[in-house]
């Protein structure tokens, strides 16, 4: 019951997902649309419980056991609860149950997202520019012909995106575009065939109950 029922359910849902693609009849399509866009979205929304629950548990344990840098776990937990409170009660556009405003200072969820989450995320990812460049400097060596090709392709694509260089060598953006459109497409497409076969076999293994990692290895 604990293993067989979820496996049968998984297979049944897989057949529904597959069959709906091949039957263009209105009834089947409406059923599939409702299932995909409403029912599964509702179930999926609840899955956030697992993610947030595990974050709260992780940081709570860290504070309890006073592990290294445990003080910062308070920052995560307090900001998580505070943001969720502001968002849930203040509404997504600040028109919720409680007005998130003190005098002229507004702190609704949209303002927090634009002025805190976006700057933090964008800066975090922009740091990767530095780390990627420094890693590439250490790792890339023109040791053989293949490595030289990789370097040349990377340099052309990078330089073509710099306006002064592109103005200096007008043909460079076209060469960069050609590299992205032709050899890059050929390599990616070749790899995509292999990746797709992997996706297909994994999907079939899940549906047929061969791949049981999601059952906790049972």
């Amino acid at each position: 019951m604990k293993v067989r029922f979820p496996l049968i359910l998984c297979l049944l849902m897989g057949i529904i997902g597959m069959v709906a693609y091949y039957i263009p009849h209105r009834i089947v399509q409406n059923f599939d649309n409702e299932l995909r866009n409403t029912a599964l979205r509702i179930i999926f929304a609840f899955s956030l419980v697992l993610g947030v629950g595990s974050i709260i548990r992780h940081h709570w344990e860290k504070i309890k056991r006073k592990r290294e840098f445990w003080e910062y776990s308070y920052v995560t937990l307090i900001s998580l609860f505070l943001t969720a409170f502001i968002g849930l009660f203040g509404g997504i556009d600040g028109k919720g149950l409680i007005k998130m405003q003190i005098g002229k200072f507004s702190f609704d969820i949209h303002t927090i997202y634009v002025n805190m989450a976006i700057p933090l995320g964008a800066t975090m990812f922009s740091l990767l520019a530095y780390f990627m460049a420094s890693a590439a400097y250490r790792a890339f060596r023109a040791r053989n012909f293949e490595a030289i090709l990789l370097l040349i392709a990377a340099f052309i694509v990078m330089l073509a995106s710099v306006p002064p260089v592109a103005r200096l060598i007008p043909k460079l953006p076209y060469i960069s575009e050609w590299i992205l459109d032709v050899p890059n497409t050929a390599a990616k497409r070749g790899m995509l065939f292999g990746i797709t076969l992997g996706v297909l076999s994994t999907s079939l293994k899940i549906l047929l109950g061969i791949e049981r990692g999601w059952l906790g290895g049972k």
């Binding site: 956030l48 920052v75 998580l80 943001t83 502001i86 969820i109 927090i112 805190m116």
Partner: peptide
């Protein structure tokens, strides 16, 4: 981490 998860809940 806290803000993005709080925003996800919202």
């Amino acid at each position: 981490v806290g803000i993005t998860n709080g925003y996800a809940i919202t």
